[in-house]
Computed example of a mutant assay.
Amino acid sequence: MTLTPSRSEFLTIRGLRCHVRHWGRDGAPKLFMLHGWMDVGASFQFVVDALQGDWHVIAPDWRGFGLSQRTAADTYWFPDYLADLDAILRHYSPEQAVNLLGHSMGGNVVGLYAGARPERIRKLINLEGAGLRGARPEQAPGRYAKWMDSLLEKPEMRNYPSRAAVAARLQKTNPRLSDERADFLSQHWAAQNDAGEWEILGDPLHKNPGPLPYHVDDVMACWKAISAPVLWVEADQTNMWDWMGDKAEGRAELERRLAHLRDVRCKMVHDAGHMLHHDQPVALAQMIEEFLGS
């Protein structure tokens, strides 16, 4: 497995130290890639390896993930991701509209951002960032109670005895991962602590539920405001339905949501699950470059 070399940079973004991974040539067209929940920017390595064109790929670790600093607060607030992204784009591309890609949680963030700042986006790529089930008003009391209860206990992550054990954990979640890819991801997904154990590079606080409901209508208003062309990509063996409803219900709701995008192209990646950038990076890279070049 031949890996495209990357380099790290650290920025102070809204008071937190943010890690940003770069691939490619400075001065080449920029492509920003935003990872999902409990993932890291290095997760896009295999897609970068498969790109044929001359690109400068920029992939930050969201706050509290990877090598980026964790928040000092007791809760991660979703709007902070949008503000962090805004600061990152102003740093690297203060004047030019950008090519922006997001996976899963990152896809949710870029979809909202592209509606709030439509003039900042040249083209948008959303990899299975469809969102959650819509909240109902009667769920609010229980949701606030669950959030307050979660603040009473410190959440923890499981540690692993070796990096090989971390790789095995990744392969358990995604059996499609080859040994080489799992080994690569393990060294960016975890780090060895003073006790010699391997800790996941994700703040355990991310496991806590947030108090605010998911308002689908608000999200769709943002999607409707997106002016850039959008490429929607999903996997044929996705488990998106775990957080959108059963498959039949979720499929219908997904189609309803996609109809809010004024200029969207939909693509399917075959023989892939939700981590489609790991499962079929060559096919995904080809879709990305065809879309960006069109």
Rank of each mutant, 00 (worst) to 15 (best):
L101G: 11
T71E: 12
R63Q: 14
E199W: 06
T4F: 00
K154Q: 14
D271H: 15
Q96G: 06
G142E: 12
G36K: 02
R14M: 04
S178T: 12
S6R: 04
M275C: 15
L82F: 04
R21L: 12
C266P: 02
F46R: 09
S43Q: 04
A191S: 13
R17Q: 15
I226S: 06
L34R: 03
R158G: 12
V110A: 02
V47C: 14
S178N: 08
L276R: 06
R133H: 05
N208Y: 04
H270F: 13
R251W: 06
G210P: 06
I288Q: 03
H188W: 11
I288C: 01
D271E: 13
L11I: 07
M275T: 05
R7T: 13
R136E: 14
V269K: 01
S68Q: 03
D194T: 05
E95F: 08
M275Y: 11
D49N: 15
L89D: 07
G41D: 07
M105I: 02
T173Q: 07
L276F: 06
I288R: 00
M38Q: 14
Q286M: 04
R181I: 10
D271V: 09
T75F: 07
R14Y: 03
D242P: 02
H188D: 03
I125K: 01
Q45E: 13
A140R: 10
P209Q: 01
P229C: 10
G129D: 10
R122E: 15
N174H: 00
T4G: 02
G27Y: 11
M38D: 12
D218W: 09
G250M: 09
T4D: 06
N174M: 00
T2E: 11
P161I: 03
Q280P: 07
L31D: 02
